[in-house]
Amino acid sequence: MIFKSSRRQLLALLLAAVAPLSFAQSNELSLLNVSYDPTRELYQAFNPEFSRYWKEKTGQSVTVRQSHGGSGKQARSVIDGLDADVVTLALAYDIDAIAEKSGKLPADWQKRLPHNASPYASTIVFLVRKGNPKGIKDWDDLVKPGVQVITPNPKTSGGARWNYLAAWGYALKKGGSEAAARDYVSRLLKNVPVLDPAARGATNTFVQRGLGDVLLAWENEAFLSINELGPDKFEIVVPSVSILAEPPVAVVDAVARKRGTETVARAYLEYLYSPVGQKLAARHYYRPIKPELADARDVARFPKVNFIRIDDLGGWQAAQQKHFSDGGSFDQIYGR
């Protein structure tokens, strides 16, 4: 019996391996969604919903495969030839890079879907240890002496760029000048004992290694950490001001054209804006762009935040150049 079933499994595996080769002839479609780390659970829930919807609507079966990793690394894979029909990454800069370096999608990709092509959003919050022993309430508490802040390196982590810009944006708003922002961020970085290369690594450092008093994290990641580790260990502190983090999505035109998946790829992304997509986003701790479509109970978990937008800071291209390129503000602060 065991032998039989394992043989069957082997056969299924083999079939799965050759299935992509035969999609052109059959009515069987496949999509590859290249995404970043924290969306794994969201798309695991969303993909079967989309397949069901598509089957009902058109009669075609579609399987969606997902690939996850650091946002920048994923973008590089697509540039280097990974056949992604759609990309759903952490920041617009990474999709811009695909457009610029490979020409696989047009430069104005972000105008093709509503809300800067971001069906869901998130923000940067503070994860602190239970009881908030250091009394961290807002950004100003992060630069106090003796407070250790964990955040990944913005030069290697997309998530960390949102953290950095949130801090910068806060200080800019409060102090009113570039000099004030720079001063605040350099004081903040003095309290950072470790710079992990990626967001998941930073979460590990804070959660598993017990290092630091506060972790700067995506709101959805903070919720996930609390879910996994129990509400008795950590709590979320939402600062008065934070950045509206918009993880955008796009069809990679050249790939979709080649694989004959343009229609279904576009429908896949549009479905993220549907009630089903919005509900699932909210359930997985992303702020839905149309909260009225999601479950009120899920939406109630998101406190009101005063948002800074990336466009207030000049948009991604300018922000990247100014802060995270070689010799940018981050390097200047660490420079000697």
């Binding site: 920048g72 690394k73 973008a75 540039i79 390196n153 290697t156 070689d326 660490y334």
Partner: peptide, 21 residues
């Protein structure tokens, strides 16, 4: 720990460059 000038290794520098494309 990967702090600039303190505990960064050369392979990390390569990754850093790649992350900036």
């Amino acid at each position: 720990g990967n702090l600039p000038f303190v505990s960064e290794i050369t392979p990390l520098m390569i990754i850093t460059k790649l992350e900036q494309y």
